[in-house]
């Protein structure tokens, strides 16, 4: 699915990722943990194609050179970044963005535009699953949404777009336990042998609900430790301090 080799990224000559290697196979859930400033969010942004980074290294996604693709081409190819801070777009309704995004993806796949009625029915079905009121479809994208509503809106987009590689960037931040469960249930419902996840998080709490196959610890722009779920528990118990000596 995704192979990252010797990935470096810098902003204004300040190195953030410094030789990161990671391979994610179809169906796997990888958690990326690390202290603040370790480069977790940068990793998500670089993979999604955000501007403003000086990048070297290679990333192969579904046999394509990911780093050469424009952000929208990556998205159309099924790479989805759930933002830590979802963006507000005044005046643009949620449902319009959903439809535009889905059609962009279908067009890239050579499929016709989605039928308006089918689309509406499917959206109405899925918005129930994320526990948002239907009114949210007609409100401006994320404008005036609470933190939890924004995260559930990200989940709704995920459910509609059915991506193959999902990157969750600090999805648990700002969520209370009920909202966290809703989001986790939604994410778990998407788990399948064809779909992979990268779960970026500071705390192990989220991993109680989205159970990873692998846990990696990111520090100073590199993966410094990898293991199974138990690694997350160790981090929870001991903090990140012990890694300094590792």
């Amino acid at each position: 699915m995704l192979t990252i080799k010797d990935l470096h990224a810098a902003v204004d000559n300040k190195a953030i990722l410094q030789g990161l290697n990671l391979t994610i196979h179809p169906g796997e859930v990888h958690a990326i943990m690390g202290p603040n400033g370790s480069g977790k969010s940068t990793l998500g942004n670089v993979l999604a194609g955000r501007d403003g980074y000086d990048i070297s290294g290679t990333v192969t996604y579904q046999h394509q050179d990911l780093l050469s693709l424009a952000p929208e081409v990556r998205a159309q190819a099924g790479l989805f970044l759930a933002f830590q801070y979802p963006i507000e777009i005044p005046g643009v309704s949620n449902i319009y963005l959903l439809k535009a995004a889905l059609n962009a993806k279908r067009k890239a796949q050579g499929l016709p535009e989605v039928d308006a009625m089918d689309f509406l029915n499917s959206v109405k079905e899925k918005i129930k699953a994320v526990d948002l009121d239907q009114d949210f479809l007609y409100r401006s994208v994320n404008e005036g949404f609470s933190g939890g509503e924004k995260k559930r809106n990200e989940l709704l987009q995920m459910l509609i777009l059915e991506p193959s590689m999902i990157i969750l960037d600090e999805t648990d931040s700002g969520l209370d336990i009920d909202a966290l469960k809703v989001v986790a249930d939604g994410v778990n419902s998407l788990r399948s042998p064809e779909r992979s996840f990268m779960v970026i998080t500071h705390y192990q709490r989220l991993l109680d609900y989205i159970v990873p196959d692998f846990v990696h610890v990111l520090a100073n722009g590199k993966i410094v430790a990898s293991g199974g779920k138990e690694l997350a528990l160790k981090l929870e118990a001991q903090g990140y301090g012990w890694l300094d000596n590792a």
């Binding site: 952000p71 929208e72 990556r74 005046g91 643009v92 963005l97 962009a104 401006s140």
Partner: peptide, 30 residues
């Protein structure tokens, strides 16, 4: 037009041009 807004729309699969149109259109909707 925020770089954040453009990137967000592009991450959802819209081209930069469509993203600008979308944001401008939203701005003028009223």
């Amino acid at each position: 037009i925020g770089a954040d807004q453009l990137f967000f729309c592009q991450q959802r699969g819209l081209s930069a041009e469509d993203a600008v149109n979308l944001i401008v259109n939203g701005f003028c909707r009223e």
